[in-house]
């Protein structure tokens, strides 16, 4: 396993510059606006020069950009992500409050995405060019063409307004004790079965909406990967060697999963993008709803904080995907 350790070290070395780059980009974006922030915060054109000067000093706007960036980094590391001028609360604390809801939604959607996408892909590879294969292809195309906010509203229409079997908004009941902030997990840990079912019924619609855009993509990739693996020499060899069907399937799946995992990592970005919109429609109290609320009140520190946290989640997910990848495929480590 020595190579694995080296691989992990190498991967971490590329991880750090990416995070720094993301910080630089967010810093640039947040300093693009407005032309003269000090003047704006002091009250616009009519602001007294002394006040403008004081604000400029206080927020280090008179320093050169690289010093400002260092100060910005310093603040971020200290947990000072700025204060929302609208709610007067600390952006970092707000994000910490909203984060578990987004994490829970993203996790449940990812699970749905994989447990529906991969089997659909396997079936369409094995039943290639049959009606099932065509249906999966069309589902994939519908998924990538669907405006996620509209799908969310239509699902609410069917399952809440018409059938009234699933709730349309909110996250359900908070469990008595919060261990992880994930309602589903916490309600199991508390042994509160009623809370668990309530929370489960609340997460079904948003999680399905989010995963629907990606199910087809994952299914198509799985299909392609399996077809590729099936034509590989080792499959024929294994059959000749007399492996049982079960053993053979294990080999095929393990090899086919590699591209699927990569695409899943990329698809996670679409999932996070979709979460911003989906959370808004379902009033899911996560980072997405928080961002959209901040957009409507032009709350810049909150928007930049959310952008940063979402990018970090995405980078870390891809890091995990790459590590997982190296664990199942020894060739990657070199």
């Amino acid at each position: 396993m020595a190579e694995l350790k080296y691989y992990l070290v190498r991967r971490m070395i590329t991880f750090i510059p990416t995070v720094l780059g993301v910080l630089v980009l967010v810093f640039i974006i947040s300093h693009m606006i407005p032309a003269d922030p000090a003047r704006l915060w002091a009250g616009g054109e009519k602001a007294k020069p002394e006040v403008v000067e004081a604000i400029r000093k206080k927020y280090h706007l008179d320093e050169p950009y690289h010093i400002q960036f260092m100060l910005y980094l310093n603040d971020l590391l200290k947990g000072d992500w700025g204060k929302s001028p609208v709610t007067k609360r600390s952006v970092f604390e707000d994000i910490a409050n909203y984060f578990p809801a987004t994490l829970e939604l993203a996790l449940v959607s990812s699970i749905l995405l994989l447990i529906m996408g991969i089997p659909l892909g396997i079936v369409s590879a094995l039943k290639r060019d049959t009606i099932i294969d065509h249906i999966v292809r069309i589902v994939a195309l519908i998924g990538v063409s669907m405006p996620v906010f509209w799908l969310a509203i239509m699902l609410q229409w069917v399952f809440y307004y018409t059938l009234n079997i699933l709730p349309a908004t909110g996250r359900g009941v908070a469990p008595q004790v919060s261990y992880t902030g994930l309602y589903l997990l916490d309600s199991i840990l508390c042994g509160d079965f009623n809370a668990f079912t309530a929370n489960l019924s609340h997460i079904i619609l948003p999680a399905f909406t989010l995963s629907f855009i990606g199910i087809g993509v994952i299914a198509r990739i799985t299909r392609g990967a399996i077809l590729d693996v099936l034509s590989a020499d080792f499959v024929e060899f294994s059959i000749a060697k007399g492996l049982t069907k079960l053993q053979l399937y294990k080999h095929i799946l393990k090899n086919a999963l590699i591209p699927v995992i990569t695409v899943f990592g990329l698809q996670f970005g679409a999932l996070l993008s979709g979460a911003v919109i989906t959370e808004t429609v379902f009033s899911w109290p996560g980072i997405g709803s928080y961002t959209v609320k901040a957009i409507n009140s032009l709350d810049f520190p909150a928007i930049m904080g959310s952008t940063l946290i979402i990018a970090l989640i995405y980078i870390i997910t891809n890091l995990i995907v790459d590590i997982f990848y190296a664990v199942i495929d020894p060739r990657i480590r070199f």
Partner: peptide, 19 residues
Amino acid sequence: TDIFLAFPGLVLAIAFSVV
């Protein structure tokens, strides 16, 4: 390029259009 691709597309588009 990598830095831009480290953001989920819509999220970065939101940040730019807000600005």
